[in-house]
């Protein structure tokens, strides 16, 4: 039912009230320090000439994160950017570009994007990773991109994520496979919208 989305693809998605008014668009997605959940979004105005907004959107004000819009209950629930962004330097800046290592010390690759679940959970389900040579051997000139499920045990520190070595067995090639893997049970995420391929 709930579609998986790459956090970078959320940029420019409209923020719409339940009354149908577009009040802003997403600029950046902000995660908590464990990179386990979305804590909110920074915003920019709608249209070509509008810049960043002073207000941000805390996750608590989000009704649903959808394929075509972020739906909020009320525009009065937008918060001062400082309230949402205080954690941003410590979280998102660290996740994108961070190295991914197994707890056995093997290099998995570097984080290109964060995969989140649509709906009202705000859950981070995995990462899009530029795979290291060890993980994706072969003669391809371009390094392969893989999706790594987040799992329950993940250490985020400094410039690296450390994941259990056995989680590497679950590395998959596309968002649809990641959805099947993180769905928790057959059919839970088998809606027509779960079949998105990799974004690039």
């Amino acid at each position: 039912m709930n579609e998986l989305m790459a956090a970078r693809s959320l940029t420019t998605r409209p923020v719409v009230t339940l009354g149908g008014d577009a009040v802003a668009q997403v600029k950046d997605t902000v995660f908590d320090a464990e990179a386990g959940r979305i804590t909110g979004f920074t915003l920019s105005g709608r249209g070509l000439l509008s810049g960043p907004l002073r207000q941000s959107l805390p996750w608590s004000a989000v009704h649903a994160l959808g394929h075509d819009a972020v739906v909020i209950r009320d525009r009065r629930e937008l918060a001062d950017t400082a309230a949402v962004v205080a954690r941003r330097e410590a979280a998102q800046g660290r996740v994108l570009g961070a190295r991914v290592l197994t707890d056995a010390g093997a290099d998995v690759g570097t984080v290109l994007d964060v995969v989140v679940e649509g709906g009202d959970s705000g859950r981070v389900v995995g990462f899009r990773v530029a795979a290291s040579k060890d993980l994706a051997p072969g003669s391809r000139r371009r390094r392969r991109q893989v999706y790594v499920p987040r799992g329950e045990t993940l250490a985020v520190s400094g410039r690296a994520l450390v994941m259990p070595a056995d989680a590497v067995r679950h590395v998959v090639g596309g968002l649809a496979e990641l959805a099947a893997l993180t769905g928790g049970g057959p059919g839970r995420r088998s809606g027509p919208e779960s079949g998105e391929g990799p974004l690039s």
């Binding site: 719409v16 009354g19 149908g20």
Partner: peptide
């Protein structure tokens, strides 16, 4: 129907 605004019919 939930609401009609400048962006959409919700």
């Amino acid at each position: 129907l939930l609401g009609l605004g400048d962006h959409a019919l919700m």
